[in-house]
Amino acid sequence: MPELSGCLTGWRPEPLVEHDTLALEQARALAAALGTSAAPADELPPLWHWVHFLDWPQHAELGEDGHPISGRFLPPIPDRRRMFAGGRLSVTAPLRLGTPAERRSELGEVVAKRGRSGDMVFVTVRSEYRQDGELRLTEEQDYVYRSGESAAKDPHATRPTRAPASEAPWQEPFVGDPVRLFRFSALTANSHRIHYDAPYCRDVERYPGLVVHGPLLVLKLAELARRHEHPVRELSYRLNRPVFAGDPVLLCGGPDGRLSVRTAPDQVVVDASFA
């Protein structure tokens, strides 16, 4: 197999401009999926724009894994596997529901690396969101792409049976069950089979269970801060390892701006900070 850096020679896709009406219905549906008591009526909370600006490729344009075969910012590497790795959000002003919005996305940093589990490509996509010509959100999302499967995966790995203890001021136990994963996949136009097809997860991608969406975990952390009446203007987050359906985790945080998702005995699977 050629080094992945060679596959990226000359790859520099043009920026992409998209529009959305920011209809209220998506916010109501997300509130129900998250278990939030009330849906927003006028402004989107941080990260809730993830259920807008959706892309629905034709069925024939999807690969065996359910992920699009091609896309503006998908690197041209063979047998591509995608993982959501982290990101950053800066809120100048909240997006207003019912007001047309524009998103301009462009390719950021692209780095090919060789690790213990094989070659990987790290890709950052930077997006700016505007309403009435005014910048309201700036976002960067980091993805890791691998060619083929990682030999480090273990479909028989030991799973946690309880959430860890914590002294964090804010705590919320959480378990990502298959029904919630299905609803979140539908809300975000995510047809990746790792979130709903258990045999595929185990037999093809070698995961021990359905994978809980990284964005779902990050959204739950942002909601933890919002529920404690701490507005989020800046948010940075990193996903260290996957969480699987049925695994008990603990959402932790505090007014010091630190957030995390933890699993027993005390492992940080998502690390985040806000201001």
Rank of each mutant, 00 (worst) to 15 (best):
R262H: 05
L239Q: 11
R116S: 15
W56C: 05
Q131W: 01
P199Q: 02
T188N: 01
L16Q: 13
A198S: 14
D119I: 01
S273H: 13
G253W: 11
R28A: 06
R130S: 03
C7E: 07
H52G: 04
G35W: 01
V212F: 13
P57T: 08
F274H: 06
S147G: 06
S191M: 10
L216E: 11
G35E: 03
G115A: 05
P231A: 08
E14Q: 14
Q267I: 14
A168C: 01
Y207Q: 05
E64T: 00
G254V: 11
A60C: 03
D119A: 11
P100F: 00
L30S: 01
D42L: 10
G133T: 06
H192K: 11
E229S: 14
D20R: 00
W170G: 07
F174I: 03
P164G: 04
L217E: 09
H19I: 01
R206Q: 13
S273V: 10
R96H: 10
V175Y: 00
A60T: 10
G66W: 05
M83E: 09
Y200F: 15
H19S: 06
D266H: 14
R262K: 11
E149V: 10
F184T: 03
A272H: 12
Y237W: 14
Y207L: 05
P15L: 04
A60S: 14
V204L: 04
T9Q: 15
